[in-house]
């Protein structure tokens, strides 16, 4: 059987099935449907906006909390690192929510996922991976002004710190 025959068989079966579905749809009682104001329709895009904003708010709350608590403890490199991570995560989630707000006004289209990275990971995992990569870059490249400056830390010191943070991140994701 060649591919045209195989598809022809499929199309004939589908045509009969399709006709039956149309008959059933014709008898479908739509008077049961009660539409509510759009504001209450929580579509997946609106859910994404809300969860992005919620995540950004959590980051902001933790940053503010840390600033207050800082009066009571000595800041170290992890503290700085955590700050940078939270700030970046907050920025990424805010950008994500702004993008979703913009997309909300666009005609939705099916997103053909050609990229394995995009199809395998959720937007938050992608945001977390992106934030981690940026933080890692900053961690290696930018000296943090502190008593224990990163520029003075050895490479093994930095690698150990990154391993610890990666472990924490993988647990969170």
């Amino acid at each position: 059987m060649n591919k045209e025959d195989s598809l022809q068989e499929l199309m004939t079966a589908w045509q009969q099935h399709s006709d039956r579905i149309e008959q059933i749809a014709g008898q479908h009682d739509l008077s049961h449907i009660k539409l509510v104001p759009r504001l209450f329709v929580l579509s997946s895009r609106r859910r994404r906006i809300l969860s992005s904003l919620a995540m950004a708010l959590v980051c902001l709350t933790v940053i503010v909390g840390m600033v207050i608590l800082r009066q009571h403890y000595i800041s170290d490199i992890f503290d700085q690192f955590f700050f940078a991570f939270l700030a970046l995560l907050m920025v990424v989630t805010l950008i994500q929510s702004l993008r979703q707000i913009f997309l909300l006004r666009q005609q939705p289209q099916l997103n053909f996922q050609f990229s394995i990275f995009n199809s395998q990971f959720s937007p938050y995992s992608r945001a977390a991976v992106f934030a981690s990569v940026v933080v890692m870059f900053l961690f290696f490249a930018v000296p943090i002004p502190n008593d224990r400056s990163m520029s003075q830390a050895s490479l093994s010191h930095r690698s150990a710190a990154i391993t610890n943070v990666s472990f924490v991140l993988s647990n969170i994701i």
Partner: peptide
């Protein structure tokens, strides 16, 4: 999604 449709 919220269950706002009453369907038969």
């Amino acid at each position: 999604s919220p269950m706002f449709l009453s369907l038969d």
